[in-house]
């Protein structure tokens, strides 16, 4: 595997993708997203944080190419190629009839690559999420957390330029969730991936990301953007520092501000 040596600090990263003035209107009158501007740089870990209905999942679907913006544009630096994107949904979304390794093989398989050809990559990805011993298991034999790991392995196996995660840990219990948060950051250190992570948890967003985009609802829009200056690697110790507490409070205030904006607008 050829991986970049280190992620440069914020502000020195190369541009990867740019959303400018993106609107999304459903059925002609439901405005899901209004005037969203976002520049994603290589190595960013961006959290989209906001209440439900703020358009964070809509934004993700737009970037994934699953729906088209009503107006505005989403431009990949150097164009988008096959395999540039990995996705992790809220559910593990595994094929129940296929083994763990076959599930991870999928992105390659759909590009016409045989299993033998990419066996090393598949096993490497499984090793990265700590499931190399379960390559022949079926999804139903795994716990919720393990299924999510398979899903993450599948998203990163092609070493995509961008990984989208749509509230991937929301359905898991708190302990598994913290463990997966730790592991996700460890993984990022290893493969230097760029991540856009949708969440409605303040604590999760502060722990994971270096950029937090706070969004507001009705219409869905970006309210403000915060940066988390704490350098990586971060681990469970970070969760107990006063710095973490202060950052969570700031982010929480920003989120409340975003929700308040909406209340004032509707009042």
């Amino acid at each position: 595997m050829t991986l970049p040596s280190a992620i440069p600090p914020l502000g020195e990263r190369q541009k990867l993708l740019e959303m400018s003035g993106v609107d999304k209107v459903f059925n002609g009158d439901v405005v899901a997203l209004k005037g969203m501007n976002l520049t994603v740089n290589q190595g960013d870990f961006i959290s989209l944080l906001g209440p439900s209905g703020c358009g964070k999942s809509t934004a993700l679907r737009l970037i994934a190419g699953l729906s088209r913006p009503t107006s505005g544009s989403i431009r990949w630096e150097g164009g988008q190629a096959r395999g540039d994107l990995g996705v992790v949904f809220q559910e593990p979304t595994l094929m129940p009839w296929a083994t763990v390794s076959q599930n991870v093989w999928l992105p390659f398989r759909l590009r016409g690559k045989g299993y033998r050809e990419v066996r090393d990559e598949v096993l490497w990805a499984l090793k990265m999420v700590g499931l190399e011993k379960f390559q022949n298991a079926y999804p139903r034999e795994l716990s919720g957390g393990m299924k999510m790991r398979v899903s993450i392995a599948r998203a990163m196996v092609t070493e995509p330029r961008l990984i989208l995660m749509d509230e991937p840990f929301a359905a898991l219990d708190e302990i598994t969730r913290m463990k997966l948060n730790d592991d996700l950051l460890a993984l990022r250190e290893k493969i230097k991936c760029t991540v856009i992570f949708v969440t409605h948890s303040v604590y999760e967003s502060v722990f994971l990301s270096d950029r937090i985009v706070v969004m507001a609802a009705r219409p869905g829009r970006v309210s403000t953007e915060l940066t988390v200056p704490t350098p990586y690697p971060r681990n469970e110790v970070f969760r107990t520092t006063p710095e973490y507490g202060a950052l969570c409070r700031d982010t929480s205030d920003a989120l409340h501000g975003a929700m308040h904006e909406h209340n004032e607008a509707s009042a």
Binding site: A64, G65, L66, L85, V87, F89, T93, L106, P107
Partner: peptide, 9 residues
């Protein structure tokens, strides 16, 4: 979701 996944890939 699997349908979406196939579309993305």
């Amino acid at each position: 979701n699997l349908r979406d996944l196939y579309k993305i890939y």
